[in-house]
Amino acid sequence: MPTEQITEKSDTTAKGIPKILVVDDSPTLVKFVSYSLKSSGYEVVGACDGMDALEKVSHLESDIDLVITDLNMPNIDGYELIATLRQNDKFAEIPIIILSSEEGDEDKQKGEKVGATSYLVKPFKSSVLLAEVARLLD
């Protein structure tokens, strides 16, 4: 089921508001994470898998400030997405958070190797996610 693009802006002006890309093949997770981020004043772009994410970032006018991605996704998975983004100068330095139910050390190390900045295990508390986003964007 393709995830609808969620581009919501908070009440303040769009300029200066961090834009966050949320990638997950679960529409529930995209909705939940998007809502948590929007209510904290971030702008959110949702994508249903790695391929959708790459397509969306290629069409965006402004830059993405942070990426939150799942690992297990059809078409292009989270690892491939991160590796692809890291090859692009625009995304070489931005923070990337992995959100996954995979708890094995192997997955975490693999994520770190391809260029993830942080790793959160599902299910997670929205307060933990928001604190991590704020820390990485600080």
């Binding site: 997950d24 679960s26 529930t28 997770l29 939940f32 809502y35 948590s36 297990n72 139910s101 599902k122 299910p123 997670f124 508390k125 929205s126």
Partner: peptide
């Protein structure tokens, strides 16, 4: 909202 993540986990 945190608890509603059960849907993602159960769908997996």
């Amino acid at each position: 909202m945190d608890a509603l993540q059960f849907q993602d986990i159960t769908s997996q």
